[in-house]
Design a protein around this nucleic acid. Structure first.
Lengths: 208, 208
DNA sequence: AACTATTTTAATCAAACGATTAAATATTTA
DNA sequence: TAAATATTTAATCGTTTGATTAAAATAGTT
């Protein structure tokens, strides 16, 4: 009896196990291609248990979706509103921290983008992304830094480009590996290289 | 009777109608979220007819997938191997033609990327993308142009960045619209702006 | 130990979905 | 025109899938 109790405590909360399995499968396959039975199997539990804890596939998905978006935009918010760092430093920090994040969890961008495309975004509206990004310290610094350029680059255009350079390679990973005939390890090495390249390029763009 | 025949000729080939409907729905929802009944309804035909013409959902999908990839990479191949234009001109042409393509069919990049992620790529291997891109005139010109730089940018890194700047905004369209509080029309206007911005930025990067 | 509440399972339901069949209609060919 | 072929439909089959139910196992409490 005592042993059994110890065993139970070892393999975490059942709820947590289900959530972890759901995260894995949803991130990998997306909502539509995911079967609740897959999640149950991955979690090592019965299918009925999943519905007992989370009522429905959609409710479970909403939790994962919300949690994923939060995790993804939080880092951005923190870095962008640091009043103690320069614009250039922010670019370096954002680039480095996001590439690290994506190396650890490469499925997240395409998961988010693909689900936001299909699911008309009830979820997305919960985030005050507009507030977080458009009124950030980063944005004010950018406008300050480029106000003397003849052709000032619109802040949103700049923002989009920075995020493109950081995130797109992970979204396009399968194609890049095909075109460049790379294995996962070589691909990752390239992404690490980009931590240095992207800030350089951004500086070059700002001076233009 | 003559009238009926005329009617029939008007509404194209039934096969073509089904293909067009399949293209629309698959591009919009992806394979897993698409129901064959949706395609039949969109095409204005019976469900059985779809299977009569194309045997199965998967066979129909493969046709659309192949056709979509071909269309998407062909333009690239043509521009990249034009021996009569300069490197800078090629960047301009690629940027402009691809942004035009994506303004007309904005769903294509995320459709392709998402399907390539799930479906282990039997399809992808049919394309000799490596040949097309890595041995293109464009690549040789790039290496020539940057060979005197202290830190030569690896061609594949450059290629990735160019494609990122062009394509990612369309993939991230829903988020960008949320962050910038934009309507579709305003978003499109921004993309048109980028036709001029991206070649400028690329030049700035090349000089660095 | 006895009782209650919680957790887990096996079995099953009902709807959704891809696919098939057999028959009807239209078109082409002889 | 008659026979043969191609096109289209209504009805339905068999699986898959999300969800439920009722009962068993376990944990917690007195």
């Amino acid at each position: 009896m005592a042993v059994k109790k110890a065993d139970r405590n070892l393999d975490i909360n059942t709820e947590a196990k289900i959530l972890e399995a759901a995260r894995t499968i949803f991130h990998k396959k997306g909502y539509a291609a995911t079967r609740t039975r897959d999640i149950a199997e991955e979690a090592g539990i019965n299918l009925a248990l999943l519905n007992y804890y989370f009522r429905s596939k959609e409710k479970l998905f909403d939790i994962i979706m919300l949690e994923t978006m939060e995790g993804f935009f939080q880092s951005l918010s923190v870095v962008f509103n640091d009043t103690s760092t320069s614009l250039e430093k922010k670019v370096e920090v954002v680039t480095e921290s996001y590439i690290d994040l994506l190396l650890a969890q490469p499925d997240i961008p395409i998961f988010l983008l693909n689900e936001l495309r299909t699911h008309p975004s009830e979820i997305g509206e919960k985030f005050k992304m507009k507030q977080i990004i458009m009124h950030s310290v980063f944005f004010k610094q950018w406008q300050e830094a480029t106000k003397n350029n003849k052709n000032q680059i619109p802040p949103l255009q700049f923002m989009i480009s920075l995020m493109s350079l950081i995130m797109f390679p992970f979204v396009a990973c399968p194609i890049i590996k095909m075109v460049g005939d790379l294995k996962q390890e070589q691909f990752n090495k390239m992404m690490v290289e980009r931590k240095k390249l992207i800030p350089k390029w951004i500086k070059a763009i700002m001076k233009s």
